[in-house]
Design a protein around this nucleic acid. Structure first.
Length: 491
RNA sequence: GGCGCGUUCGUCUAGUGGUUUAGGACGCCGCCCUCUCAAGGCGGAGAUCACGGGUUCGAAUCCCGUACGCGCUACCA
């Protein structure tokens, strides 16, 4: 139906932070647009003055920027269809509200909140199938309206919905959905404070901003017929609708703060890579049709299609996110990881220590295939940044034998002989010693690991020794020989 | 209550009437590799396709009903 390149929008309201569900909506819009060389715009729906949160817009934009979703138009990048804050477009909404009133498709309503409240209660008491406004003010004469207007009475503008009609909407993910206007209330379009409601502002802006596809959460499906009515009343071409399945808590209720983190910034703070979060969220409700699950943004753009979006809600499962985070770390090289590690170091107890890029890259090389988060390097392999302050009891019991100190003394002697050794030199020295002593090399390896790291797991032992260096390794072994012997006597 | 949407392993999902003893992934378990931990390889447990009818030679796939879940039902978005 529409042959021009698509224009889509992500239209959050600035109520605090970017929800992961919002991130997915933004992402699907972005992927759809970029797949077709279209444009995506960011529009801030700040029409509810009561819910406005200071700094929310900045936070939203910052988080969106971090995620890698780039907008072609919006408050932060400009564009030809602005302003992109709805609060700055009030006169535009009034113009169209007036047009609707003139056409008889909307009307001013002067009913007090009290009357409305009573009406609702009355209808509920009578157990009427649906609770709706009774069109009381539609019957006001022109003169009565003028009178109230000049008397300064406050009013709202309502959509004039004609009962008994069928409104059909065609949804790319859900197919055809029909609504009977009997179930549709005379929606308020302009509030008494002069601000529009979502419904009016959304339709007007989508039209004026030449939006071709409305891709949004399923919670909007029920109000879509109101939007369709608005397009028809104003004589505008409708966009294509696509309503996305919801993201759910483990108990299948709508994803909420009570059951875990819902803000994108929470995940960012916890150390999730943007690539992993994007990859994960993309797979919640969409798949490429094959077995692939690891995706970079470019590939998502290439393969995305609305036709492959699911209908059912998806549980936000942190286990899979963790796996994807590890996968994305494994796919990155040490140069890409370096700044991330430096950042983690800055936020750790090692912030006042300094390490060369060279050193950190060696650590990364040894660790990046065995971690889930970059910060695991700081927390689980702390021994790259400080000497161990204690030794794992279980490992002592298992690996530290009576003859261990003598063996390690001999190993130190061998290491002392090495001149500017590389990894292989250390290995040759250790294996050579084990051979000449006719012992398994494990009798050396495990105690050395314990001495150097204090724990029983980590990278390959020769990597560990090489990274720490000859002097430091020897020193740590000496310290261990003293302390662990002491511990044993003590027990 | 009304209206709408949904329902395949614990979770994300493949599947669009016969190729299905329902495939993959995460997680879980075991084995291999191995200096440890991961990674990797191999294997395993795990879904009577919500339930009940119907259509059909044949249904997870089409139709109807029921149940359950979710969304909307605001001068919130």
């Amino acid at each position: 139906m529409i042959n021009t390149t698509p224009r889509v929008r992500f239209a959050p309201s600035p109520t605090g932070y970017l929800h992961v569900g919002g991130l997915r909506t933004a992402l699907y819009n972005y992927l759809f647009a970029k797949n077709k060389d279209g444009e995506i715009i960011l529009r801030i729906e700040d029409t509810d003055r009561n819910r406005y949160v200071e700094g929310a817009v900045e936070n939203l934009i910052d988080t969106l920027n971090w995620s890698g979703i780039k907008f072609d138009e919006g408050p932060h990048v400009g564009g030809n269809y602005g302003p992109y804050f709805q609060s700055e477009r009030l006169n535009i909404y009034h113009k169209y509200a007036d047009e609707l009133i003139e056409k008889g498709k909307a009307y001013r309503c002067f009913c007090s909140p009290e009357r409305l409240q009573k009406l609702r209660e009355e209808q509920q008491r009578l157990k009427l199938p649906q609770v709706k406004y009774d069109k009381h003010c539609l019957n006001l004469s022109k003169e009565e309206v003028e009178e109230k207007l000049s008397a300064g009475e406050s009013y709202v503008v309502r959509l004039n919905v004609e009962p008994g009609q069928i409104v059909k909407i065609e949804d790319v993910v859900r197919g055809n959905v029909e609504f009977n206007t009997d179930n549709i209330d005379d929606q308020i379009l302009i509030k008494s404070d002069g601000f529009p409601t979502y419904h009016l502002a959304n339709v007007v802006d989508d039209h004026l901003m030449k939006i071709t596809h409305v891709i949004r959460g399923e919670e909007w499906l029920s109000s879509t017929p109101k939007h369709v009515l608005l397009y028809d009343f104003l004589g505008w071409e409708k966009p294509v609708f696509a309503h996305l399945p919801l993201l759910l808590n483990p108990d299948k209720s709508k994803l909420s703060k009570r059951q875990g983190d819902v803000a994108v910034e929470d995940y960012r703070k916890k150390g999730y890579l943007k690539e992993a979060l994007i990859n994960f969220v993309a797979l919640l409700g969409w798949n490429a049709g094959d077995d692939q699950e690891f995706f970079e943004m470019e590939e998502l753009i290439r393969k995305f299609s609305l036709e492959r979006v699911n209908k059912a809600g998806a549980v936000f499962n942190i286990e899979k996110l963790n796996w994807l985070n590890a996968e994305h770390i494994r796919h990155k090289n040490v140069d890409e990881l370096l700044p991330l590690l430096k950042e983690e170091l800055q936020n750790s107890k090692f912030a006042d220590k300094s390490f060369s890029d060279e050193y950190l890259k060696l650590v990364l090389e040894a660790m990046h295939e065995r971690i889930t988060f970059v910060k695991d390097i700081v927390e689980k392999s702390f021994y790259f940044f400080e000497r161990p302050t204690s030794y794992d009891e279980k490992i002592i019991k298992k690996r530290w034998k009576d003859d261990t100190p003598q063996l390690l003394e001999k190993l130190i002697d061998e290491f002392e002989k090495l001149d500017n050794p590389n990894k292989e030199d250390f290995e040759k020295a250790m294996r050579g010693l084990a051979e000449s002593l006719e012992i398994g090399v494990g009798k050396l390896i495990h105690p050395v690991r314990l001495a150097l790291s204090g724990v029983g797991q980590g990278p390959g032992i020769f990597d560990l020794i090489f990274i720490l260096g000859k002097e430091e390794s020897i020193e740590r072994i000496k310290i261990a020989i003293q302390n662990i012997q002491f511990d044993k006597k003590d027990n």
